[in-house]
């Protein structure tokens, strides 16, 4: 028996915080790759303290639905899951390369394969691109388009900016979009000035955030000038300074995120069979070329 537990932040105020987590769990549950798939939260229930006792399997793959390595993945989650002997050196990471560590949960005795966060996995780049396809409705989007990956910035965690740069570099290397930039909410280059950073008339803007909330639904749309008041909404695309801005909202709501979770677990030793391929196809919202 093997179980998958996806752990996320959750919220006391916003029910949309955990809904993508639940949706990705549902996608993976439907593949049948795991005997059990559960979710656990810092701010919701089951709590990180109690989620492991809700799974019956002896072997549990825990994947954090977080964007970067830092306070939550290195301190809070291992502590609350009671992973015996955890030390961040177990991951031997440069801030982007955390993969997995195998430990025992002291309260349940389960073997826990504690994985690195989804946000730093290489397949997250594909989710960002898939998000661009979904928001434009074009499975071949790229030519004539600029691509902005948006992050919080380094104010609270330097690894956060590392993840943004990493994925922006990888999208650039694909040579698919005309221009690729990493932009930030609270440092230069700022997302407020998005149109200054692109020559392309069309720009897809994808925030590297797990869930939609205050930052992705209120701050960023207003800062970019998509709307004066987030409550009145905005069009996709919206023309700002002569550029068409295709604002995608949090990348974490894209169905393909389930693939990153699966790949993290598979690399930690989970037997997921053909689930990766299935999820990659099933979560596509635009027709593939030739369809």
């Amino acid at each position: 028996m093997q179980a998958l537990v996806i752990v996320a932040h959750g919220s006391h105020l916003n029910p949309d915080s955990s809904s993508p987590t639940q949706r990705h769990a549902d996608t993976i549950r439907a593949t049948g790759a795991f005997d059990e798939v559960k979710t656990g939260y810092w701010k919701e229930e089951p709590s990180l303290r109690e989620v492991l006792r809700t799974v019956e399997s002896d072997e549990v793959f825990v994947v954090p639905l977080f964007i970067s390595e830092g306070y939550f993945t290195e301190q809070v989650i291992p502590r609350e899951l009671r992973l015996d002997g955890w030390d961040v050196s177990e991951w031997d990471s440069d801030g982007l390369s955390a993969d997995t560590a195998t430990l025992t949960a002291t309260d349940t005795g389960q073997v826990v394969h504690y994985c690195g966060p989804v946000g730093t996995h290489e397949s997250m780049t594909d989710v960002l691109v898939r998000r661009a396809e979904t928001v434009t409705g074009d499975p071949d989007v790229g030519e004539g388009f600029g691509f902005a990956v948006v992050g919080h910035g380094t104010e609270r965690n330097e690894n956060s900016a590392k993840a943004i740069e990493y994925h922006a570099d990888r999208i650039r290397e694909m040579d698919r979009f005309d221009e690729v930039r990493a932009l930030y909410m609270d440092e230069e280059p700022e997302v407020d000035d998005v149109t200054d950073h692109f020559d392309s008339e069309d720009v897809v803007v994808v925030p590297l955030f797990i869930a939609d909330g205050f930052h992705t639904q209120e701050d960023i749309p207003e800062d970019m000038g998509l709307t004066d008041d987030y409550r009145t909404g905005y069009d996709v695309p919206t023309v700002v300074d002569g550029h068409r801005i295709w604002y995608a909202g949090a990348v974490g709501t894209e169905g393909l995120m389930a693939d990153v979770v699966l790949e993290r677990a598979a690399e930690a030793g989970a037997d997921v069979g053909a689930a990766v391929e299935r999820v990659r196809e099933q979560t596509r919202e635009t027709p593939t070329a030739g369809d």
Binding site: E45, P46, S47, R49, E50, V51, R53, T54, D107
Partner: peptide, 22 residues
């Protein structure tokens, strides 16, 4: 367990004298 997460496990741990109260 979806309506009331972890209540079944905690009830049974208590019944078995193993509830880990913090």
């Amino acid at each position: 367990d979806t309506f009331y997460p972890a209540t079944v496990a905690n009830w049974n741990l208590e019944r078995e004298g193993e509830l880990d109260v913090s």
